Amino acid sequence: MAKQVAKTNAVRLIEQQKIPYELLSYQVEEGQPVDGISASEKIGYSYEYVYKTLVTTVGKSQYYVFVVPVAKELDLKKAAKVVGQKKIEMIAVKELLGVTGYVRGGCSPIGMKKLFPTYIDESAETLDFMIFSAGKVGMSLKLAPHDLVKACKGNFADIVS
Rank of each mutant, 00 (worst) to 15 (best):
V34D: 07
D35H: 02
D35F: 07
D35S: 04
I37V: 14
S38E: 15
A39Q: 05
A39H: 00
A39R: 00
S40M: 06
E41W: 04
K42E: 12
K42H: 06
I43N: 01
G44E: 10
S46T: 11
Y47W: 11
E48A: 09
E48G: 05
Y49L: 11
V50Y: 02
V50L: 12
V50G: 06
Y51P: 01
Y51L: 15
K52E: 13
K52Y: 11
T53A: 05
L54M: 14
V55S: 04
V55T: 03
V55R: 00
V58A: 12
V58H: 07
G59W: 01
K60L: 14
S61Q: 13
S61M: 12
Y64K: 08
Y64N: 13
V65M: 02
V65T: 11
V65Y: 03
V65F: 04
F66R: 01
V68T: 12
V68H: 03
V68L: 06
P69A: 08
V70T: 10
A71S: 11
L76T: 13
K77P: 06
K77Q: 14
K77D: 13
K78Q: 09
K78C: 13
A79Y: 07
A79S: 03
A80L: 05
K81T: 15
K81V: 14
K81P: 10
V82G: 08
V82N: 04
G84Y: 05
Q85D: 10
Q85A: 11
K86R: 12
K87E: 15
K87A: 14
M90T: 12
M90Q: 10
I91R: 00
I91V: 15
A92K: 12
V93D: 11
V93L: 10
V93F: 05
V93P: 01
L96N: 06
T100I: 01
T100L: 05
T100V: 07
V103K: 04
V103L: 06
G105F: 01
G106E: 08
C107R: 02
C107Q: 03
S108P: 05
P109R: 04
K114Q: 15
L115D: 15
L115G: 10
P117T: 11
T118F: 00
Y119D: 12
Y119M: 10
I120L: 05
D121G: 03
E122A: 13
S123W: 05
S123R: 02
A124M: 07
E125R: 11
E125T: 07
L127P: 02
F129A: 05
